[in-house]
Design a protein around this nucleic acid. Sequence first.
DNA 1: CTGTATGATGTAAACGCTTACAGTAAGCGC
DNA 2: GCGCTTACTGTAAGCGTTTACATCATACAG
Lengths: 341, 341
Amino acid sequence: MLNHKRPTIDDVARLAGLSTATVSRFINGSAVVSAERAAKIKAAIQELHYTPHLAAQMLASNKTRAIGLLLPTISGAFFAPVLRGVETRAIEKGYSLLVHSTQAQAQNAAGKGTFKKILAEHNTDGLLIFAASVDATELSRLHSIGFPVVLLHQASPKEFSLPAITVENKNGVRALIDHLIEDHQRRRIVQLRGPENHDDTYWRDLGYRQSLEAHGIPYEADLIETGGFNTEQARQAMRRILTRGIHFDAVFAGDDESASGAMMALREAGWRIPQDAAVVGFDDLNLAEHLTPPLTTVHSPIEQVASEAVELLVKQIGGEAVPAETLLPTYLVRRNSCGCS
Amino acid sequence: MLNHKRPTIDDVARLAGLSTATVSRFINGSAVVSAERAAKIKAAIQELHYTPHLAAQMLASNKTRAIGLLLPTISGAFFAPVLRGVETRAIEKGYSLLVHSTQAQAQNAAGKGTFKKILAEHNTDGLLIFAASVDATELSRLHSIGFPVVLLHQASPKEFSLPAITVENKNGVRALIDHLIEDHQRRRIVQLRGPENHDDTYWRDLGYRQSLEAHGIPYEADLIETGGFNTEQARQAMRRILTRGIHFDAVFAGDDESASGAMMALREAGWRIPQDAAVVGFDDLNLAEHLTPPLTTVHSPIEQVASEAVELLVKQIGGEAVPAETLLPTYLVRRNSCGCS
DNA sequence: CTGTATGATGTAAACGCTTACAGTAAGCGC
DNA sequence: GCGCTTACTGTAAGCGTTTACATCATACAG
């Protein structure tokens, strides 16, 4: 395929009149090399356009200098910040990034287990696992072989402990619903829940319940639907709610993308936001600010979760201990969709 | 780090009472192995939980089974479909995906050239290069060594030919502006241009000019600003336009994200869309439909470009010839922001 | 029965690097 | 001058695969 046979470390060593060991040490900075020879090596590398063969480095050093990111699916506005956070920090730490969406794989005939072959042990030094992308069995296996792993937006299984990082879902939602109740006198608040296999769903629901309870408002099953953290699903969920003909004066959409869907459904039905119903989300994605009216939501440091996760992973790879659970703070962002001005 | 020393192909061979060559052939299906021994090998692999060491395979076979995706930056709603398209098709083809944002790298002290080390020749079998992520020198080098490359949303340099794939920018914009002029009688149409180093910018501008010209409308520099294919930049660009106090009755925002920013600026200034000014975008991202009013735009098959690009790359890797230029069709999507109902 | 394909398997040499180990030269205290 | 560090540098043995080549049955034509 390639025209030129690529230069190897031997070529560089020969041209510089030195041994491969010295060249290797210079390249990796793994030992001091005299200035004079360093210059020669540098020149030789330049001249030959030499780049180390990573596979060879991996094989010899038994390190891949790569981390894997496992996602359930790549879609929605949510994953851009995740990816950006992971990528930036990974590069910074000198790792390259292998991305794998487990959903694409599941649809594929090659099918389940593929990701193991592609990402697992041999190919990465560690794995970043996003909520709902890997099943418990596999997690358990990874844990049992002591493979470095960090869970994102997902709690560690009870049976064993894997470091997990996510945001303050419960308190964030608590503040959000409190605001709706206390500052805008809303009492019948629809909740569009996220996917059932998602930990964020659980905690957000808990925050919702706690806020209601604190204000003496009963939890009503009629006001609950599944929005799936997804615009289209949320839109349909909202339509179902509307069909029920029940009274409500606010909607907590689960996340911002769902809020967008909920708004559409409401508007289709002629509702005014926030007069007829306040709508609030969670995440504070870029789009939140651009909705009409601008969305009141909870700011979630998604990108920071991602880069912090890389940090934790790299620490683990280096053999350091890391906290079992990391929770990044969230805070309420008041815009207009709740009735604030 | 890992508890168990992992089994090698030798272990498998020993357990099965065969040679490593036979095991290797069985694993890769690179030659026929008698049914009897195949069974033995399979059993041995199972028993040992053997998985091939990819670095070793790469080194020995000189293939990585990985492709690299180079992006200028990972942000905005635009990259999610790109990534999804690439990822899905890559897996399908049996390749893993290395993602690298060249901007993150540029900011990094380690600095320029890093990506070469991480992604280039040795680590991937081919590269997908998104507009503006790699400079001409590097492209030229890749071309000169015959390394498989596909350019996305970027034309091939004139000096040499690299396969490129993008969408019908010019005709798409042409249809869009024609619509504004012919169906909505707009004649003073602001254009928010994309980044200057971006080919899409050039072609979209050309479509804009051609449409004006065809309708006998002069091209006015006053109506042009740089939106940078970016919400915030576009918002500010729009504000500058408003400050000029010039008359206009429509805005072609360059892309959908810019359209969102333009809408915000217009609304801030008390303009009604589309009555006071029509606003149109390009791409037809998810968000287009969710803006208020829903955005008239040009549908661009972003995900398809991405997956087609993988297809082209894999063909090249396999030694097949591929077309120098691929243009995927776009079409006008009329929603309300232009005045349609 | 010999000669020759044919098919399945084994042997061992790469692949390009890292790194343990073994020098070697220079500096220093005495 | 001697021995002991200190500071580099070189030699060569892996790392776990693939694969060209050799080998060895077996089958089949003549």
